[in-house]
Design a protein around this nucleic acid. Structure first.
Lengths: 125, 125
DNA sequence: CTAAATGCAAACTATTTGCAACGAT
DNA sequence: ATCGTTGCAAATAGTTTGCATTTAG
C-alpha cells in the first residue's frame, strides 16, 4: 500500500465525515504536498472496490466518500445540505425479505434538520 | 409551456423508462430536429422543480429522469445495470414514523436480476 | 529487477451558462 | 414592447487516462 493510499484512507476514517474527492485532496496535500488529484481519484476508486470505504452519490453534488461500512442510511437536510448517518434496522429486514439476490442498498432521505427548522420558526415570528 | 418542454415531458412519460438527458435529446430531435441539448437540460431542471418528473442519481452514470411520481424504489442489477421500479409499502410507513420533517426519500437497491442469475448458472455448467 | 503506483497534463463526460435571436402575449 | 425561451457555443465541474518517472517489494 503506497503512502498516498494510506494517507487518503486515514483522512476518510479519521474525519468521520462525508468528504468529496476535492476535500480529501486538500487534506492530503497537508501531509504529502506533491500529491496529485488524479492519484486521489485513483485511490478512492480502489478503496471502494476493496470495500474499505463507500461511495455516496447524491443529486447535484460530487460523489462523497464514507468511512462507515456498516449498513446505514443518509439523511440530508433540504435546506442546508448537511448529511448525517441514520440506522433503521427494520429496513434491513424488509429488504432482505423482499429482494432475492440482494447485494446492497442505498437510502437517502430528504428532510429538514432541527437547526433549519428552528431558523424557519424564528423567521416567521 | 413551450413546444420543446411539451415534447420532452411527453417523451419521458410515454417511454416509461429511466432515460438520460442525452437519450431524451435524441428522441426529441426526431420531433424537433433543431432542438439543442442545452434546452433539454434546462427543461429537465424545470420539470424536476415543478415536480412533473423525478431525477435519479446513481454512481458512475449520468442522471436519469423518471416519469413515475409515486413513491417507489429502484432495483439495479449489478451485472447488467438494468433499472426497475419496486414498491415496498412497509418502508414508507417506517420512514414516516422514524423521520420528523420527512420530505422524500430515495432508495436504490443493488441485486442480481433473474436474467443475469440464469446466465451465471449456465456458465458454471 | 519488475510490477505497481505516482505526478502531471491533457482528455473526456455531464452539465451549465452567456448571449443574440426568436416567440408568444 | 416585453419577458420568457430558444439554439448555439463556450465554459465549467467532476473525473479519468496516457505517459514518462518513481517507488515498493
Amino acid at each position: 500500500m503506497s503512502k498516498q493510499k494510506q494517507v487518503i484512507l486515514k483522512i476518510i476514517q479519521s474525519k468521520k465525515m462525508h468528504l468529496t474527492a476535492d476535500e480529501i485532496f486538500m487534506y492530503a496535500k497537508q501531509e504529502i504536498p506533491s500529491i496529485a488529484l488524479g492519484t486521489v481519484y485513483r485511490n478512492l476508486n480502489k478503496l471502494v472496490e476493496e470495500n474499505q470505504i463507500k461511495r455516496v452519490s447524491l443529486p447535484n453534488s460530487p460523489d462523497k466518500f464514507d468511512w462507515n461500512l456498516s449498513k446505514h442510511s443518509h439523511i440530508i437536510c433540504s435546506r442546508c445540505s448537511s448529511i448525517n448517518d441514520i440506522y433503521i434496522s427494520e429496513i434491513d429486514n424488509i429488504l432482505k425479505k423482499e429482494i432475492d439476490s440482494l447485494i446492497s442498498y442505498n437510502i437517502t432521505i430528504d428532510y429538514v434538520c432541527e437547526k433549519c427548522k428552528a431558523k424557519e420558526k424564528d423567521a416567521t415570528n
